[in-house]
């Protein structure tokens, strides 16, 4: 009896330091965001007042907001499936009998340890018109010079390409870990049965990798909302918001336009997206357990 009561005390005491910080920097700000989104931004002349859903109405009427959401949607569509597919291919190659395997694995994984800012510095040069590598490559094939990051129709694609490059190797690791836990006898059995490699991948390997794919998928989706560092270097969200993403727009609203109420409202929308993902993850992972 005494022992069990002590467990409560010890448990909470051990948890306390972490809990205080988590509440202060995760739970409290989440609630405060929702609360602040119902108030106006305080200015020197007018203090903050309760405005109900006015900020959300302003949001609905803000064309930039809709463009940013749309951009974020295409950014996710462009980066998530491509980096997952590449990650699987990389993992299969690196896990197989490839000459120079260690070197290839190192090459794939290197972007993961580089900061987005440094990477953007280098890629900026690739995309620079006239002198950049991409333009030189295009010129070699007889194309004409193009301002890749200055053109609203190409800028998002450029950002997506760089993000895929940054992320694929990171996701490869998870597939590599999964592949190493799959018994090689499966492969042998399939070969004996005369299954082609593609058939083996499609019918045996890919289903076995499903839990990993779900895990990676969720991470990739979160990243699609979280990765904005490169925008600071490459485009600043431009031209004309063509490459602006939600988190970058939040940053702009709060720290460039000083409209904290609007920034809180935008953050609330982002939290909404994340909540949807959390819930769907819960159900997806729930299904995964039934799978087994």
């Amino acid at each position: 009896m005494h022992e069990r009561r002590l467990a409560h005390v010890y448990g909470w005491l051990l948890l306390l330091p972490a809990a205080v910080l988590l509440v202060a920097f995760t739970h409290y700000p989440t609630v405060a965001t929702l609360y602040d989104s119902l108030f106006s931004t305080a200015t020197r002349l007018r203090p903050s007042t309760f405005v109900g859903l006015d900020n959300y109405r302003a949001l609905g009427a803000d064309p930039v907001f809709w463009q940013v959401v749309q951009n974020n949607f295409w950014f996710a569509v462009g980066t998530v499936p491509a980096s997952i597919a590449l990650a699987i291919a990389m993992a299969l190659w690196v896990n197989g009998r490839l000459p120079g395997r260690a070197l290839v694995r190192m090459a794939y994984f290197t972007p993961t340890v580089l900061p987005m800012i440094a990477v953007a510095n280098i890629w900026l040069f690739f995309y620079t018109p006239e002198i950049g590598l991409l333009d030189k490559l295009v010129a070699a094939f007889g194309g004409s010079s193009h301002n890749w990051l200055g053109d609203p129709s190409t800028v998002l694609t450029c950002i997506i390409a760089m993000t895929i490059w940054k992320e694929a190797g990171f996701f490869m690791i998870f597939y590599l870990a999964a592949l190493q836990s799959i018994s090689p006898e499966l492969r042998e059995a399939a070969t004996v049965e005369g299954a082609s490699r593609w058939y083996y991948f499609r019918r045996i390997l890919f289903p076995l990798l499903m839990p990993t794919t779900l895990f990676v998928l969720i991470n990739a989706l979160i990243n699609a909302f979280k990765l904005v560092d490169h925008l600071f270097i490459l485009t600043k969200g431009g031209p004309d918001n063509a490459s602006n993403l939600l988190l970058y727009y939040i940053y702009e609203a709060a720290f460039s336009f000083f409209d904290t109420a609007y920034a809180a409202t935008l953050t609330a929308v982002l939290l909404g997206f994340l909540a949807v993902m959390a819930v769907s993850q819960f159900f997806l992972f729930d299904r995964r357990i039934h799978y087994r």
Binding site: T26, H27, T30, A32, T33, T260, A264, L270, A278
Partner: peptide, 19 residues
């Protein structure tokens, strides 16, 4: 606790700056 895996501090820059 696990909520932080979804809602990373990066998302909450506005409120955390105030804090």
């Amino acid at each position: 606790v696990l909520m932080q895996l979804m809602v990373m501090p990066e998302v909450l820059i506005v409120e955390n700056y105030r804090t």
